[in-house]
Amino acid sequence: MSTRSDPLTRRAALVLGGALILASSCLAAGLPASAQTAAQPVRIGVIGAGNIGSTIGGLWAKAGHEVMLSSRHPEELKSIVEGLGPKAKAGNPAEAIAFGDVVFIAVPYKAYPQLAQDYAGALKGKVVIDAGNATQARDGDVFGEVQASGIAAVSAKYLSGAKVVRGFNAANYKIFAKNAHREGGSMAIPIAGDDPKALAIAAQLVRDAGFDPVEVGPLAKADTFAMGSPGFGLDLKADELRTHLGVTR
């Protein structure tokens, strides 16, 4: 039985196909990855408009994607979205989820239980890129869950039903802002997820943001680059990151 979100997933996959064709053409022509942009825009709903949400959302907007940043008070986001250009707009979380072919989660980890309570149905079947990290000082009981079970399992619990890919969580937003589309070799971004199509879509969005994706493996492997792990906070090229994390493919 198809779900209501299936057409969005198919549309995102079609966009991915066009983007990969364009990327192949760029590589054949000898163009750098930073010159590659999606053939068609993806609609991306960003849950959270703080440092990481506005940084990565802004990179996607500048790459030609349609981006909706969200908060409970979207009227307060006017200056942020104006600074990101005409492809960016503001809404509340429900609007951003409905808007997005892909949803980017960029809120404090302590908000995940409430996020699940309020939006589990709306997120079901969606491609969700999860950038959250758990810290003891900020996230309370949820941090304890992560310490006990690992962040991959806890994200899977609270984002149950979504096609979750962990990504853009392995460094500070300032590192992303500094290194997007840099010359001399792209910064590698590790990603992990269980759905191959969702992983492929996330990988293309990593490229569009100006980085080089490294597919680490299934979602459980996200613990290898979680905050506090040896894979966190690294500024490496793709081959270097694969070696560091023991990724062989």
Rank of each mutant, 00 (worst) to 15 (best):
K62D: 15
E76V: 08
A63T: 02
G53I: 10
G50A: 13
I80Q: 13
L69Q: 03
I56T: 08
V42F: 09
S71W: 09
Q40E: 15
G57T: 08
V42W: 05
V46T: 04
I47M: 14
E82R: 06
R72T: 10
S54C: 08
P41D: 00
I44V: 15
I56P: 05
P41Q: 03
Q40W: 12
E76Y: 01
V67T: 02
M68D: 03
G57D: 08
A49R: 12
G50H: 12
L69R: 09
A38D: 13
L69V: 06
H65T: 08
Q40F: 13
W60S: 06
G58H: 03
I52Y: 11
A39L: 14
V46H: 08
R72K: 13
I80L: 14
I47L: 15
K78M: 11
A61N: 01
G53K: 00
Q40K: 01
A39F: 07
A39I: 08
V81C: 01
A38H: 12
G57S: 02
G57Y: 08
H73G: 05
S54T: 10
G64C: 07
L69S: 09
K78H: 11
G57L: 06
I44P: 06
I56G: 01
S79H: 14
E75G: 07
H73M: 04
A61K: 04
G48P: 14
K78T: 15
P74D: 10
R43L: 12
R72P: 00
G53A: 10
V46M: 05
